[in-house]
Simulated scan of single mutants.
Amino acid sequence: MNAIIEVQDVSKSYGGVVANKRVSMTVQAGGITGLIGPNGSGKTTLFNSIVGYHPIDSGSIKFEGREISKMPVQSIARLGLIRTFQQTRIYGAMDCTKNMLISLPHRKMKFLDAFSKPGESDHAKADRLLEFVGLYEKRFLSAGSLSFGQQKLLEFAMALMNEPTGLLLDEPTAGINPTLINGLIDRLKRANSEFGITLFIIEHNMRVIMNMADKIYCLAHGEMLAQGTPQEIQNDQRVVDAYLGTH
């Protein structure tokens, strides 16, 4: 497999606090890559840098071979690299269908097109994806009335409206009722296998990430601590120590 995301010697500081220090990693196209680490290890900072929210201080970030470290968020999204957040970013007063349709402009529409009404094919696509995440029956309910887990499923479906090549998910199972987690995992795996979307996932739930990822990277104190298969990571004493606070 080819690398779809290449991070090389990336450093990022905030007012003297080093969040990432010379981090290097690759995300293979078509796979599921995990990013783990204790709180404050720099995971979210790295995600934000990859998609353009926080420009890096030094290093290189490439997406499909193209340098993106100086590009704004919208330009990176139009290339096909999208991210979701720990706290959902939905429009609570709108129904689910309208949330889906408002997601369209990011990649497919030109600026002037953003003010035109979505067509039948857009509505059909929204319906298909709401069906895919299990929210079709709730499509006319306000997004704010959904449970937190359902709101995460809606945000996932909204991301899929952009037909991303790569999708970065920040704590997709955090705050979700345990009964919904398996359904979410199944849909993430299907998005990877059926739609061919490369997934890059930050996850604290070790059971989830060990069952999903092909390769896992572990950050600690802003630096790359370990990398390998789920089995290798589970058996890496440095990772165990980092989580137990002895690193």
Rank of each mutant, 00 (worst) to 15 (best):
E6D: 11
S13T: 13
S13N: 13
S13Q: 14
G16H: 03
K21D: 15
K21H: 14
S24V: 01
S24P: 02
M25E: 03
V27N: 05
Q28N: 14
G30D: 10
G31I: 00
I32Y: 03
L35N: 06
G37Y: 02
N39A: 01
T44C: 06
T45K: 06
K62V: 00
F63W: 03
E67V: 14
I68D: 09
P72F: 04
V73Q: 13
R78H: 04
T88N: 10
D95W: 03
K98A: 14
N99I: 05
M100K: 06
S103P: 04
P105S: 07
R107V: 08
D113S: 14
F115N: 04
S116N: 12
K117S: 14
H123S: 05
R128T: 12
E131I: 00
V133G: 10
G134M: 07
L135A: 08
E137W: 00
E137T: 13
E137K: 15
K138Q: 14
R139M: 14
F140K: 14
L141I: 00
A143L: 06
L146F: 10
G149R: 08
G149N: 09
Q150W: 02
Q151F: 07
L154C: 10
F156Y: 09
F156E: 11
A159Y: 08
N162E: 10
E163K: 13
T165H: 14
L167Y: 06
L167D: 09
L169F: 02
I176F: 02
I185H: 02
R187I: 11
E194V: 12
F195T: 03
I197Q: 03
L199V: 09
F200C: 11
M206C: 02
V208H: 07
D214A: 11
K215E: 13
A220Q: 11
G222R: 01
E223L: 00
M224C: 04
P230Y: 06
E232S: 12
N235A: 15
Q237A: 13
Q237K: 14
Q237E: 15
R238D: 13
V239A: 09
V240A: 12
L244F: 15
G245C: 05
T246S: 15
